[in-house]
Nucleic acid binder design. Structure first.
Lengths: 236, 236
DNA sequence: ACCTGAACACCGTTCAAGT
DNA sequence: ACCTGAACACCGTTCAAGT
């Protein structure tokens, strides 16, 4: 974020530091953060990096490779930053919230996860979840399904988040006017056939995405707690 | 599915029945089911429909409009077919499984949902979920978050499903060899840093996607049950 | 009103040619 | 080894022209 020195006038114009995979990925991330997924074109990259197409393809296989690598970086950062000194339940919430915040800050990560959900970075997340479930005394046989369920839930929220961000930037509005518009649409529906949607209008306007995400995590954790193994009494 | 009569030799060659939005959407669905998302190009549509680009754009706004309409059809079909005569818990499971099966049969629906999660068809699903949560005695204040959580979970599974299908068709392999490959990759990881992943290899190979999805639904339902309102005793 | 299809703008990617 | 940029194949979309 704080590095925009390359544009300055101090450096020698000819001998810029040579291209590298890291620089390309970092620049791609900047473009994605600035203008969203649609802003990342190979042409935009060549301009920003003051280079040609071939130079980029020399360090990167594909546009897909580029997107995947940028996403891996973001996710790996989340995992390494997460504080894990609390209890397993608290750590699980922190991990999930860390992912949520990262995807909120970089919505294109959500879209990318929907394309390639099983990148190594997400495998690390999966590993952490599994171990925490062990600490929560979830029996081994149930851990696989439980971990998958949590990952799928996080993935679903990521997708929602990305879709919302895409919509907001395409319509060039903010969250509040978007929710007001959605609420207005919901209000137009027939209350007889859509009683629940109607009853939800106020909450739609006032809800906090982050808190709703956490409420979902708690629902799953409560459900998972019911799978808890009674390590004392052996049940056949 | 059973309508492929237009190819026959009986009809007069000149005066085919004129184009319609429904026919276009139906044909697009066929192309998507046959060849996946990447197979649906405007050109492929013109060929299959024996028409020009303008003719299609006369009935359809966009390629996005087309994809959205095709997805709406599939989802609306799921909801209308779901048997709702059981208890609320059973009905919820049936609804969720109906969506799962539909996305399994038409993986492109999963990808489309990740692009536009709030289409009218999904709002109907949301409405159904909300009402069933009411029947399950989830208090009104918690229903909004709970319904959103379930929708997000289903969305996450949909995305996974679509990604898997895309990968399978791109690699031209089947589920079993895919899982074997993934299991082999997992086996290569260091068991010290990835104990949970290692312990999951067998289950990865043997698991049933549909059952794992249902296990997640059950975790959710158990978690929801803890929110249950005690309608007899009034708690302030 | 409905349809045709050449043309346009814009992608990702390649590759002969340079240094 | 690393880079350049014209060229290619292929998108979605438009629009003057037909019926």
């Amino acid at each position: 974020m704080a590095k925009r020195s390359a544009n300055g006038s101090g450096q020698a114009p000819r001998r810029t530091d040579s291209l590298s995979r890291e620089l390309i990925i970092q620049t791609a991330t900047e473009i994605l953060d600035d203008g969203g997924e649609s802003a990342l074109t190979l042409r935009a990259l060549t301009i920003r990096l003051k280079t040609g197409y071939g130079a980029i393809y020399h360090h990167v296989t594909d546009k897909g490779d580029l997107l995947a690598a940028a996403t891996d970086d973001i996710i790996a950062n989340v995992l390494s930053r997460t504080v894990t000194d609390g209890g397993p339940r608290e750590t699980l919430r922190r991990l999930a919230l860390g992912l949520f915040d990262a995807i909120d800050a970089h919505p294109w990560v959500g879209a990318q996860l929907s394309r390639q959900p099983w990148r190594p970075a997400l495998l690390d997340f999966y590993e952490s979840v599994g171990r925490l479930l062990d600490a929560l005394a979830v029996p081994e046989k149930a851990r696989f399904d439980a971990a998958g369920t949590l990952v799928n839930y996080v993935l679903g929220v990521a997708v929602q988040n990305a879709a919302n961000a895409r919509y907001l930037s395409s319509q060039d509005t903010n969250r509040e006017t978007f929710l007001n518009g959605a609420a207005a649409q919901w209000a137009h529906l027939d209350p007889g056939t859509y009683p629940f949607v109607h009853a939800s209008i106020t909450q739609l306007r006032e809800h906090d995405d982050r808190e709703q995400f956490l409420a979902g995590i708690d629902i799953f954790l409560t459900g998972i707690a019911a799978l808890r193994e009674t390590r004392d009494t052996w049940v056949r």
